[in-house]
Nucleic acid binder design. Sequence first.
DNA 1: TGAAATGTTGGGGCG
DNA 2: ACGCCCCAACATTTC
Length: 469
Amino acid sequence: MRTLVWFRGKDLRVSDHAPLVDAAAAGEVVPLFVIDPVFFAPERARQLPHRMQYLLESLDELSRTIASLGSRLVLVRGRSVEVVPRFAHDWKADRVVAHRWVEPFGRERDRRIAESLHVPFDLYEGETLVAPGTIRTGTGQPFSVFTPFARAFQAAASVAPPLPAPTSLPHLPADIAVGTEAVPTCESLGIVPNPRVLTGGECAARERLRAFVDHRLSAYAGDRNRLDRAGTSRLSQDLKFGTLSVRSVWDTVSRARGDGARTFRNEILWREFAHSTLWDRPGLLEEPFRPEFEDFPWVHDELRWRAWVDGTTGYPVVDAAARQLLGEGFVHNRARMIAASFLTRHLRADYRLGEAHYMTYLTDGDWAQNNFGWQWSAGCGCDAQAYFRVFNPILQGKKFDPDGDYVRRWVPELREMPARWIHTPWDAPDDVLRRAGVSPGRSYPRPIVDHATARTEFLETARSHMNER
DNA sequence: TGAAATGTTGGGGCG
DNA sequence: ACGCCCCAACATTTC
């Protein structure tokens, strides 16, 4: 039995990799990664700099790990729908295995490949804790509210324990002659590596999990909301690329006691819920979950959009979030919510613009997660915020960045502002501004919209829209 | 995992 | 002592 194990960017690991383990137990193994020229072209790679950097590091480590286990990761160039069936045939594979993707385009790709293959194509569940579509209401419907979903999950689901990494792999069969291509590098794709992007690969990811569980999990419930603290898990990119399997994360925290562990498990279940929802509703990447938002009167104002993207809205926390995204390919979860609320409510921009912008720069950019989060923030999603929940960016700053250190890190022109005024520099007394070297409207912009006015206008627009329907 | 407006309560200052 | 008012603190309602 010869099995082609197709790694494809969301399972860049050897631990808890059921397709790999099964293949090795069955006989010959051909580990494969497809270098798609559309994605691995310099012009495309530069559009997704942070994810490409993390992906290349992870791929390089995976390749070396597989080599150290006695095999070789075979890299072939081409469109997967074309090269996977071709090489499966040329190499006389008896079976092709991979992990299932929940995104509609991944499902369509897999459907086409299954059609062209003349051997079985077996998809393993591994991107989520349980197979998408298995958590159901009493009447067999998908859940549309998180809490009952989480309750049903806890009551019914049994999460398979993670598999250990193989200690060795069968040698690559001698007749596999092609695929000697090297792993592309940032340099070869014209990307300047960003040192702030977290290190890719299974080792770094596992170390991050260990550090989180040892040092931050117990205080997670409170600290996760603090913009100025390293209180979150920082595992999102690892889950996106599968350098950590979500089951191994779950297994690590499943027996931990306390509010921190409970809260973290809940966050993992939100991820599960997002994936499950996209599985059940593939159209969500295009259209809002709630149909009454399909013709919502979003407005596009180029200048305001640019200010939101560049971090020059005049609201320090909103601007810090914008610059953190561009600067390190990551945004604190609460800052994402504040930024999304500001874009969709204060500026009334279509959430899909923000979603696409985040998808460009986030290292952890995942379709299911990012879309779910944006729709939730915009109020049009599954179990979303009510539209009238408008974050006050000043209050959010004072609550979750009380000393202003998050703002100082990302908005250096406010670095010298005292905590008392850092979230409202336009209101600061003249002597405070002078001492801090800040001049509103010059060194740092005045707010592009007035909070109270924008809030009222949004509420009126949204209310009349909802009433019309 | 919202914020603002509005309502209620009770302590304390004061005539 | 008493009633009145102010207002902070908290609760509830509304968007």
